[in-house]
């Protein structure tokens, strides 16, 4: 147990130590004052602007900024759709993958363009190398950059006075990719290759098994349909398996950005539980570190851009407190395991020989501590990659990642999107505080008035409405219920998790739900679109509105927003909104499962 807490402590220490300098570095990059050691990238940056016809000095109003953002994402979405549909006739397809179905292409294109990376497919059995690289990996970079650009525009809204523009979308995006995401990804990808993550264009390998295995499989007729006997029972045959296909591919380059860009879409179906994606304890540590690195660093970027480091630290502290508390709950629940096992005489105590607790669905290589840490990090951030199967977590252990997503992905959250989401909650917190003391709320020197609060309401309500309405639709319609693998409370949890994941742009799957159907591809596709773009538009509207305002001088009546009191108020706002919105739904899923498990002990 103490070993686990030491690992968590090390993680927190390294994360904070790296996030602070990275945050300061990013602030300089976004101000157009990149440090000298990356000065050699400047000609490349200028070249990109020349190639794209971008005027670097153009200052966009919020409307133009938002429209550029929407247009860029639409084009990216269409490109991924076309690649997925046409991959069968395109190069770099050694496994001869056919084009995907239209509904899967629609879902996947939205998923990667919206930084969600929900996957209704298994990577190694569905996507060609070209689709993975040119479609999915490119979107991993640019969707993260879009989130960072929107955040930077919002921060400028607080800094600027009576300004019409909030920056240049194309410039902010190019700088995010060129100076932040590309160098970090290159560094991480090379390190991961050193740890054994595959990076290859060669076709899948066929290898001889050391120990052949005999399996029973359905016997097929001439039309490849499963045969049945006179009583309707399936006919099976015994088959000796002597070979195994080992899927490879350009994985390391995708995994690096999938973690750093809070994307999460695995190259392989098992995601980071796959030994070719995550082979060693060190690769596991680096990958889980990469999940939170940029979202955490952006808090310090905010402090630097606002010229008040205390504000960035307060936002970081609010996120860290919730993260640590929920990590403790998840870890303790998983370590406690299933009480029914004791009745069967199983030893679930942690010892030097075993992790103990609930090891179902977990890699023995990573154990309970690293599986819980990953599950909490990946759902706190809008990452969504997994190194253990969340469907097999204990009810409380599974509730934690689900609730973290439902909080709106603001506990570190996505690259950029996490912090702009948290700032939206901060605006709500100062509004509530303003109501209590009877003053017009202010945040970071700007008056928060009716328009900003209307936009805050839109940004907070859209994901809640999307998740709850989507879940309700899925459980009342036959097409939705058909995907459930485990009927009852757990089946409800599977649906709630899937829609929460898509409706908050996370992308992790509880598993156990057959989601590659036209119904789910459409439902989850729209959930991802709504929660991404109907948040970006109101957030940019807030940025434009704030930029146009005069700064309000600090007075005795100003609520300080860098103090522990404000951190508590902010956490309270996030938790109350999350609890009020989702507690009834959680009560029907993981909470009832938890009670069932302990009642039958």
């Amino acid at each position: 147990m103490s070993n686990a807490w030491m690992q968590f402590g090390l993680y927190a220490l390294v994360l904070t130590a790296l996030a602070w300098p990275l945050g300061r570095y990013m602030a300089r990059v976004f101000a157009g004052d990149a440090p000298r050691f990356v000065g050699w990238l400047r000609p490349l940056e200028r070249g990109i602007y020349r190639l794209g016809g971008v005027r670097e000095d153009e200052n966009m109003g919020w409307q133009r900024y938002a429209l550029a953002c929407l247009l860029f994402n639409l084009v990216g979405l269409l490109a991924v759709y076309a690649l997925a549909r046409l991959q069968g006739v395109l190069p770099l397809n050694p496994a001869d993958m056919a084009g995907t179905t239209p509904d899967l292409a629609f879902n996947t294109a939205i998923s990667f363009a919206s930084n969600t990376n929900w996957q209704s497919y298994g990577g190694e059995t569905t996507m060609s190398y070209l689709t993975q690289m040119l479609g999915l990996t490119v979107q991993n970079f640019v969707s993260a950059a879009v989130g960072m650009a929107v955040l930077v525009a919002l921060l400028r809204g607080f800094v600027l006075r009576e300004a019409r523009g909030i920056g240049n979308f194309w410039v902010d995006m190019v700088r995010s990719v060129l100076y932040v995401l590309l160098p970090l990804s290159l560094l991480l990808a090379v390190t991961l290759v050193g740890q054994g993550v595959v990076q290859s264009f060669s076709p899948y390998h066929e290898t001889q098994l050391v120990q052949p295995v005999e399996i029973s499989q359905p016997k097929l007729d001439a039309n490849d349909q499963p045969m049945t006997d006179a009583s309707g029972a399936p006919v099976t045959e015994q088959v000796m398996v002597t070979t195994q296909t080992l899927a490879v591919g350009p994985a390391a380059s995708q995994i690096a950005i999938k973690q750093l860009g809070t994307n999460g879409g695995g190259f392989f179906n098992a995601n980071s539980a796959h030994p070719f994606e995550n082979p060693t304890p060190l690769s596991n540590f680096l990958e889980v570190l990469a999940i939170l690195l940029i979202p955490a660093a952006l808090c310090f970027t905010a402090g630097a851009m606002l010229k008040d480091a205390r504000q960035g630290r307060a936002l970081f502290a609010a996120m860290a407190v919730v993260f640590v508390a929920l990590l403790a709950v998840c870890h303790l629940a998983e370590q406690a395991g299933n009480p029914l096992f004791a009745k069967l005489g199983l030893d679930v105590q942690a010892s030097e020989l075993q992790a103990g607790g609930n090891m179902e669905g977990k890699e023995t290589r990573f154990g309970i501590a690293n599986s819980a840490l990953w599950a909490v990090a990946t759902t706190a951030a809008s990452n969504g990659s997994v190194n253990a199967m969340h469907d097999s977590f204990t009810p409380l252990g599974g509730l934690v990642p689900m609730w973290l997503m439902q909080l709106g992905e603001v506990i570190f959250g996505g690259a950029g999107s996490g912090l702009y989401g948290m700032i939206v909650f901060a605006l709500m917190a100062v509004f509530v505080a303003g109501l209590m003391i009877g003053r017009t709320p202010e945040y970071l020197g700007k008056k928060i008035e009716a328009f900003e609060m209307k936009m805050v309401a839109v940004a907070v309500l859209v994901p809640c409405l999307t998740v709850l309405t989507g879940t309700a639709l899925a459980v009342v319609l036959d097409a939705g219920r058909a995907g459930i693998a485990n009927p009852g409370a757990h089946g409800f949890s599977e649906i709630l998790y899937a829609v929460s994941s898509a409706g908050n742009n996370n992308g992790s799957a509880f598993a156990g739900l057959s989601a590659n159907t036209p119904f789910y591809n459409l439902l989850l596709g729209f959930a991802m679109l709504l929660s991404r773009f109907w948040l970006i538009v109101p957030v940019l509207a807030i940025a434009g509105s704030l930029a146009a305002k005069q700064r309000v001088p600090e007075s005795a009546g100003t609520l300080p927003t860098h103090t522990p009191l404000f951190v508590v108020l902010l956490i309270g706002t996030v938790v109350v909104v999350g609890a009020l919105s989702f507690l009834p739904a959680l009560a029907l899923g993981p909470i009832v499962e938890h009670l069932q498990m302990w009642a039958t002990r």
Binding site: Q63, A66, L67, L78, P102, A109, F451, A541, G544, S545
Partner: peptide, 30 residues
């Protein structure tokens, strides 16, 4: 089917783009 899904995507982005001037109108009214 391709046309159906493409129209859905285009429709969503057109609707999202329409939000932009609508929100700006709301802002100016403040």
């Amino acid at each position: 089917m391709d046309l159906f899904y493409l129209l859905l995507a285009l429709g969503f982005f057109a609707l999202s783009a329409a939000l932009v001037p609508a929100f700006e109108k709301l802002r100016r009214r403040q």
